[in-house]
Amino acid sequence: MNKLKFLFSFLLIFFYSGASFSEVAPSDVVADEYGAVTASLTGVAGDPANGRKVFMNRKQGNCLACHVNSEMSKQTFHGAVGPVLDGVADRWTAAELRGMLVNSKKVFEGTIMPAFYKDSGYNRTLKKFVGKTILKAQQVEDVLAYLQTLKE
């Protein structure tokens, strides 16, 4: 009985730490001098279908506010602040795209595009968003997987 309890708590600790250690915290993300991020943020392969949803969702990526790509052009409301993303996977490597999602300011100096995986260094953030990133680590990986489907 005691042994079983021991094994059970051991397993719990194992899973708990496993989950938190495999996800890279925003402040620990390593980017190269051009802002590219090579390592996955979660170690779990991205899901392009979910990434597509995150891309469109106003409360998540809301990428559609500024970008569109032909595949989505039937979406009634899309913006034109940023470039059309057709063929983006041919133009950029996965590491570069991940870097843009994490913190586009390191890739495009002075860009209007928000940093989606950065949780500090902001000015007057609304209370409910303080210390938070716009997207979760796995959502970044999912959007990345979606972007990688955008080939000419």
Partner: peptide, 9 residues
């Protein structure tokens, strides 16, 4: 001209 908020604009 000062950027503010989580969207940093």
């Amino acid at each position: 001209y000062t950027r503010v908020g989580q969207l940093d604009m």
